[in-house]
Design a protein around this nucleic acid. Structure first.
Length: 425
RNA sequence: GUGGGUGUGGCGAAGUGGUUAACGCACCGGUUUGUGGUACCGGCAUUCGUGGGUUCGAGACCCAUCAUCCACCCCA
């Protein structure tokens, strides 16, 4: 059996990689317009970072991490997400000494040991943004509007932006107690999963898909009801700013984020039509995280977006641009002398930035033309015995079928002109 | 970790126990000598995922195993 790639990973080949480049470029452009700068951190980190950062009770930590011992017996983990790493860098590289807030973005691979399914991989890719050192509601609103505007630019439709506030640790524990009290009366009606969640994370019961659970929780106290003064005004301010920014959102009091570190604002963007894993972006505020991993008390806000899922959505909505790179010209050289001369010519053309290539298999004239056509070249540059003698080159337009004879001396200049003209059109 | 579907040449896809395993697309070559995109011919020389078993005989039936897809849990 030949060696295969690991389960849940993928080879991105020419033909699809262009769509990735397009998506990444669009994201970088939006970030630049919003004043966010890129950060790159290691793909693996000390396991401890994620234990503290992501939270011991989360599934990510409990069963999804790629953890290994290095040769010095240190426990290392392939990053399952980026927020913890960015916070670590903020502390370690003393970014708190720079003008605040620090506005960062990243694009890169993440790793989680899960069963693959539609829109889910073991090595997947996320684009994300983190703002550190800003506790104002504008921060939340700016980041969410960045997400919204990115999707607008990509042309995605049918998005649902859900926004909620899970409160600070104080109102959160208050809500948790109220909720457990409310649910305990009808505990017997809950599904098996929810019984688990009752102790571990009762908030999650609120968005259980099971109909009976939904019935049970229909009148449950919402997070919004129990928000303290500070959290409440913060939340109202975020909503007001989102209105101003033209973000179409919905307050969803049942929205819960899975990771332990979230406080106050939480949001999520979903699209139908890409399968069961319909969440394409999730994020929120995490005011305790930096301190948790040993830094100064620092408020934070951010999100992560799954590239595979966004790409899936773009694909089903037919929003991917048609890209056909195509060579400008293919050299058709016949015989070794012509190949030598042509090789030099290509060098001149490439130096000037023209995309040109040649047959590398020593094929016949016919085969070379065929191949030039198949590769979508606009022109074929034919150089054989006759042309060598006359010191000319045949430039054949493959779409029109016409060809002209150009003195070798003028060829570079001539092609350059043709290329410039073509680029403008 | 749990459940279900699928697994035939690069891709798509016939074939449901019996001679030399269709077909389409793609790719490569050729159709008298230096002109492609159409047409015609040929090639891609075989482990029908893999390993067992049933049978006179299996790509088709049974078992196991691997891979893949989808769903649950959870998340991007």
């Amino acid at each position: 059996m030949a060696i295969q790639r690991p389960k849940g990973t993928q080879d991105l080949l020419p033909g699809t990689i262009e769509t990735w480049q397009y998506l990444e470029e669009t994201m970088r452009n939006v970030c630049r317009e919003y004043g966010y700068e890129e950060i790159r951190t290691p793909i693996f980190e000390a396991t401890e970072l994620f234990l503290r950062g992501v939270g011991q009770t989360t599934d990510i930590v409990k069963k999804e991490m790629y953890t290994f011992l290095d040769k010095g017996d240190r426990s290392m983990t392939l990053r399952p997400e980026m927020t913890a790493s960015v916070c670590r860098a903020y502390v370690e590289d003393k970014l708190y000494g720079q003008p605040q807030p620090v506005k960062l973005y990243y694009i890169g691979p993440m790793f989680r040991y899960e069963r693959p399914q539609s829109g889910r991989f073991r090595q997947f890719h996320q684009f994300g943004v983190e703002v550190l050192g800003g506790d104002q509601a504008v921060v939340d609103a700016e980041v969410i509007s960045l997400v919204w505007n990115l999707y607008q630019r990509l042309g995605l439709t049918g998005l649902e932006v859900h926004v909620n506030s899970v409160g600070c640790p104080v109102c959160r524990t208050k809500h948790r107690a109220l909720l457990q009290e409310f649910l305990s009366a009808r505990r017997d009606d809950l599904c098996k999963d929810c019984l688990d969640r009752f102790e571990r994370n009762p908030l999650r019961i609120l968005d259980c898909k099971n109909p009976t659970c939904q019935a049970v929780t229909s009148g449950a106290p919402t997070t919004r009801d129990t928000l303290c003064e500070d959290c409440s005004t913060h939340f109202e301010r975020v909503l007001a700013l989102l209105e101003v920014a033209g973000v179409l959102f919905r307050v969803n009091p049942r929205l819960v984020r899975g990771l332990d570190y979230y406080t106050k604002t939480a949001f999520e963007v979903m699209v139908e039509e890409i399968g069961a894993q319909s969440s394409i972006c999730g994020g929120g505020r995490y005011d305790g995280l930096v301190e948790e991993i040993g830094g100064p008390p620092t408020p934070g806000f951010g999100f992560a977006m799954g590239l595979e899922r966004v790409l899936l959505a773009l694909q089903v909505q037919h929003k991917l641009p048609e890209q056909k790179p195509g060579m400008f010209a293919m050299l058709v050289a016949l015989g070794e002398k012509a190949q030598t001369q042509g090789f030099a010519l290509l060098n001149d053309l490439r130096t000037q930035g023209l995309p040109v290539s040649m047959d590398l298999l020593g094929r016949s004239l016919k085969a070379q033309l065929k191949s030039a056509d198949r590769q979508g070249a606009r022109y074929a540059l034919i150089l054989g015995e006759e042309e060598m003698e006359k010191k000319v080159l045949l430039i054949k337009d493959l779409t029109l079928g016409e060809q002209i004879e150009v003195p070798l001396m003028n060829v570079v200049e001539e092609l350059n002109k043709m290329y410039q003209r073509g680029v403008k059109v």
